[in-house]
Design a protein around this nucleic acid. Structure first.
Lengths: 223, 223
DNA sequence: GTCTATACTTAGATAGAC
DNA sequence: GTCTATCTAAGTATAGAC
């Protein structure tokens, strides 16, 4: 998502504003890295999209690698974490918590379309090397632990059947994210289906919620 | 997956064998494109992995782009299609067909670890441009149509609840594939869990089968 | 803080010998 | 069919003027 501050600053040309320029570069870099990943992204392109010269990138971020790390951290801590709001789910009944989690995950994928692609490129191209310190941070461990806890609580209370929490977390995220990740291929398979329209995304949410909730629900509740 | 013919030919050095060299190049290119995608892949690296010089790549394939297309076609028509065997599922009862489909999809992901990454890079980096003619081919349309038909048959027969077939196809594929795609990131989140061991992949299969079958099953069958 | 110009490096592609 | 050498383009990064 393009930050307003960034856009505004660079459209009113030649205004010297360090913070705005930095943000504009981060915004452009985010889009470039989302499409190409660290290795195929070009600083030239990032500069062009930003509306500044390449030299500015190196002035503010020292190297392409450093810029990449800055983008990774901003999108995870500054976007994903704020948007997914996992803490708020801890107090809800397991089924409600799971439904909200799914809806928020999909809304986040839709609102921040660069998030998923950046994470995938990082996994495939760099084997998570630059993402390691993000995901092994206390904050990330704690927040993802909440999802596992929701599933365990559901099993303990008897509303969820016996599940492997870690597998289930991945399967849920897979169902949420694949839709967006694979969209550009599937549009050729299902020509004419407007997969990325808001209506279809809403349909997607509902389908995932129905599928997953039915998939985890315990059909033989204790007496 | 590295083709035997390719390996063998290039380990017995300097044997002039056009077909074997071509296969060896395709094998190396497949691995390189799986990690980096078209744009970040380097012909230099492909040549080094193959054990031949860069010039050979251009002798056999004319350009990096042409080599990429050759890899895409081979992995889809020559690997995926043979491995997934969708035609064999048409006659089975819907639930059995769906279970087999999931198990085969995951086995295919495991046996051909380059397949998923190549497809994803193609979607993200090139918006499916080079994959278009593959996925809009009669063969692909027909084969993926089988999956949709299995779901529709299940609904017609009353064993599946009301589903949107296209969403369901994507959600199933997402649950199957995300495990492998995101592995390199999740290993940092769940340190010590051997996600890619054969035992865990078997567990993954079982979890997805259980989740999806429970998720689509009709709980109020007609009388 | 921003630009222009440029050094340095790598990667795609080809020519020509063997 | 394979290699060495090389051309050319593109990309990362820096120096220095404004």
């Amino acid at each position: 998502m393009v930050t307003k501050a960034g856009k505004a600053a660079k459209s009113a040309k030649q205004v010297r504003d360090a913070e705005a320029t930095k943000i504009a570069i981060l915004d452009a870099a985010e889009a470039e890295f989302a499409q190409y990943g660290l290795n195929a992204a070009k600083t030239e392109e990032i500069a062009a999209k930003t509306g500044v010269t390449k030299a500015m990138i190196y002035y503010y971020f020292k190297s392409k690698e450093d810029l990449y790390v800055a983008v990774l951290e901003r999108i995870f801590f500054g976007r994903y974490m704020d948007s997914i709001q996992l803490e708020a789910l801890e107090q809800l009944p397991p089924e409600q918590a799971l439904e909200k989690l799914i809806r928020r995950q999909i809304a986040t994928d839709f609102n921040y379309p660069h998030l998923g692609p950046i994470q995938i490129h990082e996994a495939l191209q760099n084997q998570g090397k630059y993402y390691k310190h993000v995901l092994s941070s206390d904050r990330a461990q704690q927040v993802f632990g909440i999802v596992t806890k929701i599933l365990e609580r559901g099993m303990a209370e008897g509303c969820f059947r016996k599940l492997h929490p870690q597998h289930t977390v991945m399967n849920i995220l897979g169902a949420c994210n694949f839709y967006f990740t694979a969209y550009e291929n599937f549009k050729y398979l299902w020509q004419g289906v407007p997969l990325l329209s808001p209506e279809m995304v809403e349909e997607h949410s509902q389908e995932v919620v129905d599928l997953i909730l039915a998939g985890v629900r315990n059909r033989e509740p204790r007496k």
